[in-house]
Amino acid sequence: MVSGAAWAGVDGNATLTSDYVWRGSSQSDGDPTVQAGVKLASERGWYASVWGSGVSFKPDNGARSEFDVVAGWGGALGEDWALDVNLTRYLYPGSDVDLDWTELNGTLTWQQRYWLQVGTADNALAGGHAGTYAQLGARLPLGEQWRLEAALGHYWLASAQGDDYLHGQLSAIWTVHGPWELRLTAHDTDNAARRLFPGNAGSRVEFAVQTSF
């Protein structure tokens, strides 16, 4: 039994979103869905988390939910820098085909405002080929309740699976009260993403209500 002093605590979150967009592509076929997650962290930075969302794909492969199981470490590297390294397992129970896959991720953050994320997998998107994803992002506070967030991502994929593609997103976030936030996000992708994810990539707007506990 691990003593209570060894753990920093348990955090959770819940979201209602008009569209689950991940790396530029809708995972819910443009429909609203509910998402929730819980994270257990130790005082030394080690953590484990589970996050889930409704999904819907075309053509229909039977998947109705996604669960991301994560184990990793996160902590400060100095006064301004922080690092998070984790292993993420993407699970799609009930799918008619094998969609499960695993990715190694690392995120370097500076002054809690700028970040660089890199993820790599030998079975990216469960497509049977290696892939590497990178995202560069920035956060701009606008007073106590408002902030802007922008990110640009690039996915390097094996040509047998699909062409490399770019996507970008810009969010306006309003902290309404306490842990409650409203988020409006504009997404866009290049034509390579549109070819890889027909009907689910391209320009779209997502609205979400989120709370943490």
Rank of each mutant, 00 (worst) to 15 (best):
A6H: 09
A8C: 13
W174H: 07
D163A: 11
T109D: 11
T109V: 13
G178D: 04
G30C: 05
T109A: 09
S212N: 04
W81S: 04
V21N: 01
A138L: 10
N123H: 07
R194Q: 12
V2R: 13
G12F: 07
I173H: 01
L184K: 02
A41S: 15
K39Q: 14
G199P: 01
W22H: 10
R147S: 14
N61S: 15
L148A: 11
T185H: 03
Y133P: 03
W156Q: 11
Q210A: 11
G45N: 04
T211N: 03
S203L: 15
P141K: 04
G106K: 03
Q112I: 11
L182Y: 08
L91F: 10
T120S: 11
A8E: 15
T189H: 05
K58P: 05
D84I: 13
L148S: 06
D11W: 01
S3C: 12
I173D: 02
V70G: 06
W22G: 06
G9M: 10
A6I: 09
T102Y: 01
L125F: 15
G162V: 12
G202N: 03
V21R: 00
S171V: 12
S212H: 05
Y133Q: 13
V2A: 15
L99P: 02
A193C: 03
V38I: 07
S25Y: 00
A14F: 04
S28W: 00
W174A: 07
W115P: 00
Y165V: 03
V85R: 00
V10D: 00
I173N: 01
L152F: 08
W51V: 08
Q111P: 02
G94Q: 07
A124P: 00
R113Y: 07
E144V: 06
D29F: 00
G74S: 06
R194S: 11
T88P: 00
F207M: 06
H177Y: 14
G54K: 00
Y165P: 01
R183K: 12
N123V: 07
Y47L: 11
W73D: 06
A41G: 12
A201Y: 06
P32T: 04
L83D: 05
A121Q: 01
E206V: 14
R89H: 15
D31P: 00
T185I: 07
S49W: 10
L40Y: 05
G162L: 12
D188E: 09
V118T: 12
W110G: 03
P59C: 09
Y114C: 07
R183I: 14
W156K: 03
G199H: 08
S3Y: 10
V21M: 04
W73H: 11
F197C: 03
A6N: 09
T189P: 02
Q145S: 11
A130H: 08
V50N: 05
G119A: 08
F57C: 02
S203R: 15
L184A: 14
A8V: 10
H187Q: 01
T107S: 06
F207C: 12
N86C: 14
R195K: 10
H187F: 13
W146L: 15
L108P: 01
L91S: 12
D96V: 05
S25C: 04
V97G: 09
G127T: 09
Q35N: 05
W110E: 06
I173W: 01
Q112S: 14
R23C: 05
E79G: 12
A41L: 12
L152G: 13
L104A: 14
V38N: 00
L166I: 08
W22Q: 03
G106W: 05
G74K: 01
L87W: 13
A36C: 02
S53A: 15
T211V: 13
W51Q: 04
